[in-house]
Every structure is written in C-alpha cells, then in structure tokens.
Amino acid sequence: MTFINYAAREINCKIVYYGPGLGGKTTNLQHVYDKTSPGARGRLISLATDTDRTLFFDFLPLEVGEIRGFKARFHLYTVPGQVFYDASRKLILRGVDGVIFVADSQDSRMEANAESIRNLDRNLKEQGYDISKIPYVLQFNKRDLSTAVPVDEMYRRLNIKGEPTFEAVATNGRGVFDTLKASAKLILTDLRKK
C-alpha cells in the first residue's frame, strides 16, 4: 500500500525481505544501514531473540531522494524466517509494495528455499496479493560459500516468473544495493502504471 502524502510531498513504500531462516535477510538490512549516510536513514529496529534470530521483524526507514518533487521513502522490513513464525510473517506482508526473496545458495537449503517461496505465495494470496503481479526480486545470497549451488541451477529451481535475479554476499555487501535498487525500480514503475 503506497502512502502518497500530497501535503508533505512524500511517497512512502514498503519493501519486505522474505526467505528461509538464517538466509541473510537481516544481514542485507544491516549492510544497507551501514552504507547509508545518517541523514538518509532512520534507526534500524530489530526485534530479535537473545541469539539474534529475528522474532517479529527488523525495520529500516530509508530516504532515497526526490522523484517528480516528491520525497521517496522506502520502509524496509524483514520477516522471521523460521517456519513456526508464520503468523508474524503474514502480519508483516500487510500493505507490502514489493518483495525481495533472499535465497540461501547452500545445497542443503534448496528445499527450504522452495518451501519458503510456496509459503510466500500462500501468505500473499491471503492478503489479497498475487505473486505473479507484485513487484518481486530474487537474490541468491552466500555466493562465497564452497557449497553454493551453481547459479543456473538455482535459477531453474527458484525463479518463478523471470523476475530480476541477483547474486549476493550480504556479509560483505556484494549485490545488496543492486537487489534493493531493482526492487525500488519495479515499485516505482508499478506506480506509473496505476
């Protein structure tokens, strides 16, 4: 749900990072936070357990510049990836404008990736969205690991509609901004069509 404030001349959009547990969603957000100037970002809120597993969500507000005289703001959220937090995931998808799916490249996590995409599809439907229509970007994270599955095989198994796909190593920032920019671009392009 885009929030357009004509009084303050702002567009506010919501991007949700989705994906299996320990895939690097929070690390993506952390990198965006670290590399953005303090004037352009708000505080990074993390509702996590004592062991740094996301419990409810992480949240980072970001101001990315002006477009047609309107300040463009993106609110980035991550969902908890662990299977049993499904109720929380549904809540966070409310009012979403775009989804970034962070897939874990390790061979042992391919089934978890696929299950998480099915879960996303189901949860989006429940909120009245259609995964084939919503701005959607795919990221293959952890490309630096020796157990990483080849990119073309991952693409075959996980890409669902020819969505923009990026390789990433969130721990050193590789691919993080490319993924985010692609998502922002899809959302704004969508706004143009409305």
Partner: peptide
C-alpha cells in the same frame, strides 16, 4: 492524469545515485 504517470526510467535511476 496520474501525477506519477510521467516518471521516467532516468528519474528512477537518479534515486540512490549519491
């Protein structure tokens, strides 16, 4: 009319450009 129908690809590319 839609205030955002005029958004161009360049406008979008300029965001994040700092």
């Amino acid at each position: 009319e839609n205030p955002f129908s005029e958004i161009t690809d360049d406008d979008i590319d300029r965001l994040f450009s700092e």
